[in-house]
Design a protein around this nucleic acid. Sequence first.
RNA 1: GAAUUGGUAGCUCAGUUGGUAGAGCAAUACACUUUUAAUGUAUGGGCCCAGGGUUCGAGUCCCUGCCAGUUCACCA
Length: 518
Amino acid sequence: MTKLMSTQHLSEQEIIRREKLTELNKLGIDAYPAALYPVNTNSVFIKENYAQHPADKGVENKDQFTDVCIAGRIMSVRDMGKANFAVLQDAVGKIQFYIKQDDICPGEDKTMYQTVWKKLIDIGDIIGIKGYVFTTKTGETSIHVSEFTILTKSLRPLPIVKEKDGEAFDEVTDPEFRYRQRYADLIVNPSVKETFIKRTKMVNAIREFLNERGALEVDTPVLQSIPGGAAARPFSTHHNALDVPMYMRIANELYLKRLIVGGFEWVYEFSRNFRNEGMDRTHNPEFTVLEFYVAYKDYEWMMDTTEQMLDKAAMATNGTTKVMVGEKEIDFKAPYKRITMYDSIKEITGFDISEMDEAGIRHVCRELKIHADDKWGKGKLIDEIFGEKCEGTYIQPTFITDYPVEMSPLTKKHRSKPGLVERFELMCNGKEIANAYSELNDPIEQRERFEEQTKLMERGDDEAMFIDHDFLRALEYGMPPTSGIGFGIDRIAMLLTNQHSIQDVLFFPMMRPEKNDD
RNA sequence: GAAUUGGUAGCUCAGUUGGUAGAGCAAUACACUUUUAAUGUAUGGGCCCAGGGUUCGAGUCCCUGCCAGUUCACCA
């Protein structure tokens, strides 16, 4: 009954493929075999190495690749009657293969060619082929097949993308299809795979950079009872056995600092953070931040380290520090420009607000036609001016330093500039990609700053932070002078892979669940 | 949350002032033993996102909803 019902929803092509599967079974062929398939090379290796050999076109080179065995998905077939050309796609690329009736079926029985290959195999099926490499008349390195094996029958037709000279035709571009069915997107759009490979290269380079310098990669809790270390709305959940509310982490900062208290000098974590907020081109509810904390350092040292790390990450990802982002060329070569927030505002708006009080800054907001909410304190006003007028103008990587104390409850006061903290953000392509401090380690002052946050909360600021008493207890034992930083890994990946949307650097971006009629 | 664009065959898309759906690719059948967006001939394939409304008649016009994209708001 259920099978009958579900069959009614199948398209003509899906029904035909199921029938082919039945036919294969009747011939005694298992379309989902269990045995290992002895792959001994891959498409790219063959093409790169065979091409170096000056073989005559249309002639086989008897010296090398005489016995290859590869596996992959059939992406296209050109049927010439008793001989076919087809394209196989494996993990690294594509290669053409040539399959001829009298080679597959040397005897009288032509079933394997005429029935199995020509009738029962489809584009999208995964097969293994054995044979030798040759160059066709038109000069394309190909595999002359002597034997093929069905490894997996595909029951759902793939979106067909044709290509010629690197240009794709009828490319699948529908974002909903691509994000919901990333597996199909990856099969059909090779550039998608490239993006994710680059992302991993970038992450590996960063990890290597940190490990080389003696940093320790650690794991800290994702489920937290106090969602600390940032100001954001958390996802809440509940622990049944303990019968307590729990939250998905919005940041891991306070845990990493506890480890610095514990005596580690340099810890880092690629932290998946969760924030229950809006989604757009640059925000996904779960996203990745690299945070690291280093004892006995300050934010000046951190700027040096940051630019070296990103220089290396860019090199490892693209082989150069320069990257095209849309129309703009961005160069990650160290060092980067450094400018204080007050100087930036002065440079861009002409207003010197460094000596002003809250009323003066509100006046500047009016002059600049920036909305200034009554609930906001001085720090938030300054941040608003910077965000509205300055942030977007920094295309090349630029350190903005020395933030107002009100916006930075976890940051050490500036060594020489009253009202400011030792903090920087790294701007790139008009967006923040990293945020760093000389960490506040005075437990009494930290308690006071938390209390100021509580007042802001009472004043109506719903972004203010919760107090974490255990974290204060840790600070009371003594945390050495420490510099810490957080990098928006997804955003850096977007820059280094020239992707416009965060969804294009996440395999499975958040989507509203599909309605299921079953 | 607001504005805006879109949802038609497995895929990419057409669809005139409203008259019950078209193309290319894919599929099926046939031909072709070096093609490459192969080619040629023929055939099948649609709850036009969903629900209301206007109308003799709606893929098309109106309303509501669903899903997605973009921009804005929100998001240290």
